[in-house]
Amino acid sequence: MELRYDSQLVVRVGVAEHTVGRAPSRMMTMALGSCLGIVLYERESTIGALAHVMHPRRALVKNNSNRSKFVDTAIELIVSKMVRMGAKRSGIVAKIFGGAKMFDSIAKGGGVLQIGDENISAAREVLKEFGIPIVAECVGGSNGRTILFDLRDGSVVVKDAFDNEEIY
């Protein structure tokens, strides 16, 4: 992912990608389903990060070379990048989005389609381990979400497929 530190452009974060930046840049990720959008922000330095992760834990998966695919490794990665950029470690707060259940259930192999819930609880656990408080969240449900993260004030606009908008 391309990093733009001083630009008004919106940085698009794809599936299993992440980006780190500082105000006045903005970041967005489209169509979160069972995936999780993890937003970290440190108000004083206006440094923030957005990761679009798919799976709860890296250790459980064979195809694991991409660290921004997993809740645990992605958080580790973006926290260290933010700190390296000058963010105060103790000032970082988190917002999480996504983790929806897009299908009711699946007769066989039902486990995987509940991955959204697993992602949410993994994010809560990992953020707790890191001592990062979750200040807002819009998770679960059965709707896809697109999120737009504005690093100027740390706000996140959440949009669903039917054009309902909410600010977190």
């Binding site: 389903g33 069972s34 259940k101 896809g144 497929a161």
Partner: peptide
């Protein structure tokens, strides 16, 4: 949204 459905 396509992306959201395909995720799962």
């Amino acid at each position: 949204m396509l992306g959201a459905v395909m995720d799962s």
